[in-house]
């Protein structure tokens, strides 16, 4: 029987969620080996998009929906590429707390946006009602609602497929 710690009340959880990433972002500026990961392991890696390299082939969208839903549908993908003009193709993808403060989790009233032990933010489809609160809250525009369900990156459980199929290396895994 593993030791079970008491689950902290919501305001403390919120403090941890909001406060610690800020501390980590500060620590990351100090040129030290990345030992902090040993202590703050709930910040996951994330898929970093480099718009300067993106060729706009939307292979990432295709692969993502294929991997998760066994169909091709850009609207059910956790990454989306917006073609702004000839030279600007911008992929939008979740940073799992690296570039944000988990606004989607705070915004969700139905406890559908969750973070697992590895720090991956994912959608619990049993709870999701498609209320668009997370879509509006996300500062990176990396959550979308399609047919009353939220879609976002879940890192394929730690081994993102879109990164493997990006021929231009415009998507990289960043820790």
């Amino acid at each position: 029987m593993p030791l079970e710690l008491p689950y902290p009340p919501i305001f403390i959880r919120n403090e941890i969620r909001r406060g610690l990433p800020r501390i980590i972002q500060f620590i990351r500026h100090i040129p030290q080996p990345k030992y902090y990961k040993l202590f703050f392991h709930f910040i996951a890696m994330y898929v970093k998009a480099i718009p300067e390299k993106c060729c706009g082939c939307v292979m990432c969208e295709v692969v993502c929906s294929m991997k998760h839903w066994n169909v091709v549908n850009s609207y059910r993908s956790g990454i989306r590429v917006e073609k702004k003009n000839v030279i600007e193709d911008v992929p939008f993808v979740c940073s799992h707390g690296h570039l944000c403060n988990f606004e989607c989790i705070d915004a969700c009233k139905f406890d559908a946006m969750k973070k697992n032990d590895a720090g991956i933010v994912y959608v619990d489809y049993e709870n999701c009602t498609g209320c668009r609160a997370c879509e509006r809250a996300c500062p990176l525009h990396a959550v979308w609602i399609h047919e009353k369900k939220a879609y976002k990156c879940d890192l394929c459980g730690g081994d993102p497929e879109c990164v493997k199929f990006c021929s231009q290396d415009a998507l990289v895994v960043e820790v």
């Binding site: 060729c55 082939c57 021929s167």
Partner: peptide, 15 residues
Amino acid sequence: AIKNKGCVQCTKPCG
């Protein structure tokens, strides 16, 4: 040329 451009679903962009 600043970067490559590809058709949809292309993994060897030539644009």
